[in-house]
């Protein structure tokens, strides 16, 4: 367990900014308690400092997880966001997509979101922008990247993909072994 290096921080924040933009500052400067990012076995954890201090007494081999895992660094040095961070990024998300009930299950099985399933979209979402996917009852289901800007989607066919799938909460079941 160690703090992130400068390079790691840069890669990580670039990725994170795709979803929450400048709201990253809200994650770092919190009113209630000091929180920090810690790297442990390639994974980035977001955890309060008091918990982190206590967790230092746990050996490296025995420490499995602390706080909330945001994602992991791949072997090529890129950062990959995990669905586990959904709670936090949903809180600060800039662009959102709501999908209809009939589109929930296809998305939770790992499919991209097609236009027919879209219920609502945040206005003026640009192309290739990270978005949070919600159900119509405002339950965050996952996140993805838009294929077209909002204005462009209006002209598309109903079967065309609007949001590329990145992560969804179905992964808790599907990828329990590889995720953690």
């Amino acid at each position: 367990m160690r703090p992130l290096t400068e390079l790691e921080t840069k890669t990580f924040f670039e990725k994170l900014a795709k979803y929450i933009g400048r709201n990253i500052t809200h994650l770092i400067d919190r009113g209630d308690e000091t929180y920090c990012f810690r790297l442990h076995r390639d994974r980035v954890y977001y955890v309060s400092e008091s918990v982190m201090r206590k967790a230092t007494s746990v050996g490296r081999d025995q420490l499995i997880s602390l706080g909330i895992c945001f994602g992991k660094f791949t072997k090529t040095g890129k950062f990959r966001m995990h669905v586990t961070c959904l709670d936090y990024i949903a809180q600060y998300a800039k662009h959102k997509v709501w999908i209809k009930p009939n589109g929930e299950m296809p998305f939770l099985y790992g499919n991209h979101v097609v236009k027919a399933h879209i219920g609502r979209v945040t206005e003026d979402t640009p192309e290739h922008q990270g978005v949070i996917i919600y159900s119509m009852t405002d339950v965050p289901l996952g996140f993805g990247v838009t294929a077209r800007s909002t204005s462009d989607t209006r002209k598309m066919e109903p079967t065309a993909i609007v949001v590329f799938h990145q992560a969804d909460i179905g992964e808790y079941l599907r990828q329990e072994d590889t995720l953690f």
Partner: peptide, 19 residues
């Protein structure tokens, strides 16, 4: 593994998992 999965799924933010 399932312990961590459940902790994350249920949104527990103050947990340390050790083995």
């Amino acid at each position: 593994k399932s312990l961590v999965a459940n902790i994350h799924r249920l949104g527990v933010k103050n947990a340390v998992v050790c083995n």
